[in-house]
Simulated assay, not measured.
Amino acid sequence: MDRVPQLSHSFRPFLIGDVQVNNPFILAPMDGISDSPFRLITRELGSAVSYTEFINTMDVVSHGVSYEKRCFFSEAERPVVFQLFDDDPARMIKASLKLYQRWKPDIIDVNMGCSVRHVVNRGAGAELLRHPNKIIEIVDGLVKVHSIPITIKIRLGWDELSKNYLEVGRIAQDYGASAITLHARTKEQNFMDPIDLESIASLKQSLQIPVIGNGNIQSIKDADQMFEYTECDAVMIGRAAIWNPWIFSGFDENEVPYSLFLETVKKHLETMKQFHGPEKGCIVFRKFAKKYLQKFSIPAERIVEIITTQDPVQFTNTFFHLIENKNLYVRSITKHDDE
C-alpha cells in the first residue's frame, strides 16, 4: 500500500550532505527498539532514514563483538545512520573510522541527547551539552576524517537554567555538521514535560543546515503542528512508533487497515526470528507483541500469558492465531479499511 502522510505542511525533500531525504517522518534511534528488523519494517512503511540504536565506541575500539548486531543493516534500509555515543573525542573518531571501513553507513550521528543515567554518568549523551569545547572536538574531528555527512542529536540543554541549544547548533554548523536533530526538552525534563516548539523554530531560523524536530509526536496532527509551527525540515518519531509503526504511512493508531496491520506484524515477527534466532527473536519481540495485541478485544491477563510464553513455537502459533481473527481487531475509525 502506497500512502504518504497527509499534512497541511508542504514537505520538501532535502539533503543531509549529499544524502537525500524524501519523506517527512524519520524513526528515532531507540536503544533496544530500533534494531534492523524494526528499521526495515518502518522504512518500508515510509520512514525516510534508518538510525541504528546507539553504538558505544568503547566497545568498538576494544575489539568486542557485542555492538555488531547494532551495526548490521540490509541494503533496503538505506540511507543508514550509525549513531555513536562516547565522551572521548579521539576514541569516537577512531571507532567511527573502523565502523565506516567495515559497514559503510551513509551518515554518522553523535548522540548528545540521551538522558539515561548510565550514559550521562560516563560523560556521554546529554552530558556533552555541558562541554561545548568537547562538542567542537568531536564534530570537527569527525568531519575532517570522513567524506560522509556528520550530524548530531541534542536536547535543549542540561536543565532550564542552562539551555544552550542555539550555541550547540552554531558550533555544529560552523564545524561542518550537515544536520541537527533537536529533542525539545532538557535533560532534566527527560520525557515528562511538554515539548518546546518555539525552541525548534528558533534553531531552524538561526541555521542554514537542516533541522529535524523531535519530541512527543503521538499522531499525524502532532507532526503537522510541529511542521507548521517550527518549519523544521523533518520530524523524528520515537516511542509512538512502537505501537503504531504505520504512522510513517500516514495512519493514526485507530485508522490502520486490518490487512496492512496483519501483513506488517507477521513480517515483523518472522524477521525478528531470522535476525535474532527463534528463541531470542520471540523474546525481543514481546515488547512489540504487547502493543500489537492491545489492538484486539483480548483480556489483559491473556495478553500477559501470551507474551510470557517461553516456547517460541507455541508463542508464534498462539500470537498468529489471535491476530488472524479480524473480528477481534478494534478500531474506532473504519473509513480507511481496504477490505
Rank of each mutant, 00 (worst) to 15 (best):
L7H: 06
L7K: 06
H9Y: 14
S10P: 10
F14V: 02
L15G: 07
I16Q: 09
Q20F: 12
V21F: 10
N22F: 14
N22S: 14
N22V: 13
I26C: 04
P29W: 00
D31S: 15
S36I: 01
P37Q: 07
R43V: 02
V49G: 09
S50F: 00
S50R: 01
T52K: 02
I55V: 12
N56S: 15
T57N: 09
T57W: 02
S62L: 14
S66H: 13
S66Y: 14
E68A: 12
C71Y: 03
F72V: 13
P79Y: 04
V80N: 03
Q83H: 10
F85D: 02
D87M: 15
A90G: 10
R91Q: 11
R91C: 11
I93D: 01
Y100K: 02
Y100S: 09
R102T: 14
K104P: 02
D106C: 07
I107V: 14
I107Y: 02
D109E: 08
V110T: 06
N111Y: 01
H118Q: 15
H118C: 13
H118W: 12
G123R: 10
A124T: 09
G125S: 03
R130W: 11
H131E: 15
H131L: 15
I138Y: 07
V139K: 01
V139Y: 06
V143T: 05
K144V: 09
H146A: 10
I152K: 04
K153I: 09
I154C: 06
L156P: 04
Y165Q: 07
Y165I: 02
V168E: 03
R170V: 05
D174V: 07
G176R: 03
A179Y: 02
T181E: 05
L182H: 00
E188C: 13
Q189H: 12
Q189M: 14
N190D: 12
F191A: 11
I195Q: 08
L197S: 13
I200S: 06
I209D: 01
G213W: 04
N214V: 07
Q225W: 13
Q225P: 09
F227N: 00
D233Q: 08
A234E: 01
A234M: 09
I237E: 01
A240P: 07
N244G: 06
N244L: 00
F248W: 08
F251D: 06
D252H: 06
P257A: 00
Y258E: 07
K266D: 13
K267L: 12
L269V: 12
M272E: 15
Q274M: 14
H276A: 04
G277W: 02
P278N: 00
V284W: 09
R286E: 08
R286I: 09
R286V: 04
R286P: 08
F288N: 03
A289C: 00
L293F: 08
K295F: 08
P299G: 05
E301L: 14
R302C: 12
D311F: 10
V313Y: 15
V313E: 15
F315C: 06
T316N: 09
F320V: 10
I323H: 05
K326F: 03
N327Y: 13
L328W: 06
S332N: 14
T334S: 13
T334V: 15
H336A: 01
E339F: 13
